[in-house]
């Protein structure tokens, strides 16, 4: 068994230690004897959308995000098809914004997004920075997730869209409606970095199950000793208060 991960724009979109999320996915597979393969795709390179089980898109600085937006426009259809076909996807911060319907800049210009997520982002005037804790209902069970957010864009979900979770402490999507992130099928968008996956193994394993089930059907993952991960999350939850 092998998980095939496509890491999109790793050298442009990596501002919040996104590599930590990839390391975590890889290690939690290898500790379970599951093979893992990570391939990087930069501007001008297109993955075979059907061949990958997991797509990852991190956050970038303004200049780099603009470069990616241009390149990503041509890839949107393939990416949406992969998610509809059962692939897992995790997008963080800038990556999350680019996968929405559009981004409206402070000057009022509108930048088209990929449209995977029924959500849009508007440039905000103040930065939302700090530790953040949300309560999520991944796979039906309550799950507390902890991370760090640093964004000025405010993201609004369209009616009926499911947020990744409800903000317990921190700002979330827009500092107004108490939502954080979005989940659509196996695809997640969120402002939480820190990085997100190491100290939230419940979320990591949820994404791995989605990815594996694409080609291997229902999978139950072997339990791992997560005492260190849980302790790190507990400290992050305290730091958010």
């Amino acid at each position: 068994m092998e998980v095939k991960i496509a890491h999109l724009y790793p050298s442009l979109m990596n501002i919040y230690a996104d590599r930590g999320n990839i390391i975590t996915l890889s290690q939690r597979c290898s500790w379970r004897g599951i093979g893992v393969r990570v391939d990087d795709f930069g501007p001008g390179e297109t993955p075979d959308w059907q061949a990958y089980d997991f797509f990852y898109l991190g956050g970038g600085q303004d200049r780099e995000q603009l470069l990616v937006a241009r390149d990503l426009a041509a890839k949107g259809a393939g990416l949406i098809e992969a998610v509809l076909g059962g692939a897992a996807l995790l997008s963080i911060c800038g990556g999350y914004q680019l996968l929405g319907e559009y981004y409206r800049t402070a000057a009022g210009d509108t930048m088209e997004g990929v449209g995977l997520f029924k959500a849009h982002t508007v440039a905000g005037s103040r930065r939302c920075i700090g530790n953040v804790v949300i309560e999520s209902r991944l796979g039906g069970s309550k799950l507390k997730l902890a991370g760090f957010e640093n964004h000025s864009g405010k993201t609004y979900l369209e009616a009926g869209q499911e947020p990744l979770g409800r903000v317990v402490s921190g700002y979330g999507n827009n500092a107004e409606d108490g939502t954080e992130g979005i989940i659509y099928r196996g695809a997640i968008g969120t402002y939480m970095h820190g990085p997100l996956l190491p100290k939230n193994p419940g979320l990591t394993d949820f994404l791995l199950r989605v990815a594996l089930s694409r080609r291997h059907g229902e999978i139950s993952l072997a339990a791992l000793d997560d005492s260190l991960e849980d302790a790190a999350r507990a400290v992050a939850v305290k730091a958010a208060r």
Binding site: G20, I23, T24, Q27, P198, K199, L228, E229, A231, A232, A234, V235, A236, A239
Partner: peptide
């Protein structure tokens, strides 16, 4: 103050 996160980083 974030000893656990550091240990987790080394583990991974």
């Amino acid at each position: 103050t974030r000893a656990e996160e550091m240990a987790m980083r080394l583990k991974y």
